[in-house]
């Protein structure tokens, strides 16, 4: 499955968003959509588990988790063998 589809699925189950993830564009602001800092950590943990990666300190910031697209490119950077799109 392409990374972005996996990311969407993980956000749907761990992002605790008050809106349906399917309605969000790849570049929609997840914080404006209601992503809390707590849920963003749960999201990170789920992504680390799914892709067998570890987010380095430089990626542990708001920007990395600001949109579905941003998360997917961070994952793509850390898991070069995954299918990007």
């Amino acid at each position: 499955m392409p990374i972005i589809e996996d990311v969407r699925q993980i956000i749907a189950s761990h992002g605790k968003l008050p809106v349906d993830v399917a309605t969000l564009a790849d570049d929609a602001d997840l914080y404006a959509a209601g992503l809390s800092s707590f849920a963003s950590v749960q999201l990170m943990l789920a992504l680390e588990e799914r892709f067998d990666i570890e987010f380095p300190e430089t990626m542990l910031n708001r920007k990395t988790f600001s949109s579905i697209g941003a998360i997917s490119s961070a994952v793509a950077e850390l898991a070069p063998d995954e299918q990007v799109a």
């Binding site: 707590f38 950590v41 300190e57």
Partner: peptide, 13 residues
């Protein structure tokens, strides 16, 4: 509580 959440992913230097 907030710090403990962050420490689930952030590794202290």
């Amino acid at each position: 509580g907030n710090t403990s959440t962050m420490l689930l992913v952030h590794k202290q230097d």
